[in-house]
Design a binder for these strands. Structure first.
Lengths: 68, 68
DNA sequence: CTCTTAATATCCCATTTTGGTATATTTAAA
DNA sequence: TTTAAATATACCAAAATGGGATATTAAGAG
C-alpha cells in the first residue's frame, strides 16, 4: 500500500503516526515494509488519519482526490 | 462491510463465492457476521470479484459506481 | 569525516487470531 | 413436516500479531 509515500509526503514520522493512532512504531514499519498485513480497522485508521480513500491508500486508483 | 448485501444482490451463495475465491464457506460467513476481520488481500479479492471499490465494499461511500 | 541522535527495521516470543473440519442451526422449497 | 440448501458455530492446531528490546540506517552538527 501507499502508506509510506503518503506519510512521508506529510512529513510525519512512523513514531508520531503510531502515537497518534495508538499503535506501535514497529507495527507501522511492518505495514510499510509489507512484512505484515493491515486488517480492516487498521486500514480505516490510516485512511481517516490522512483523509484519503481506501482505494487510493491501497493503490487501486491514482486519483488522491477521489471522493471518500 | 457490505459483503453480504453485495453477494445477495448478485444471487451468489457463500459456498459458491468461497469456491470461486479458493476460500472456505465458513470464512465467508465469519466476515459477513463480523466475527472475523478480513485482511488487505482478502478485501481486494472481494472487491475484484464483485467489481466494486474498496470504499463501497467497506461502506465508506454510498455510490456503488464510484471509480475504482 | 566522526559523533550524536532521530528514524526505521528486525528479533524474539507470549498471546491472539486464523483457517479448516465437523456439526448445528436456519431457511426454503416441495 | 420432510428434505436439502444455505448459513452459523465449536473446537483446535497452526499461523499471524503486537510489543519490548535492539540493531541498523539516515541525517545534522561540529
Amino acid at each position: 500500500m501507499r502508506l509510506k509515500e503518503i506519510r512521508k509526503s506529510r512529513g510525519i514520522s512512523q513514531l508520531k503516526l503510531a502515537m497518534d493512532l495508538n499503535m506501535n512504531q514497529n507495527s507501522i514499519s511492518r505495514y510499510e515494509c509489507g512484512e505484515r498485513e493491515a486488517d480492516y480497522s487498521t486500514l480505516i485508521k490510516f485512511a481517516d488519519y490522512f483523509n484519503v480513500s481506501l482505494d487510493y491508500l491501497l493503490e487501486r486508483t491514482d486519483n488522491p482526490d477521489m471522493m471518500k
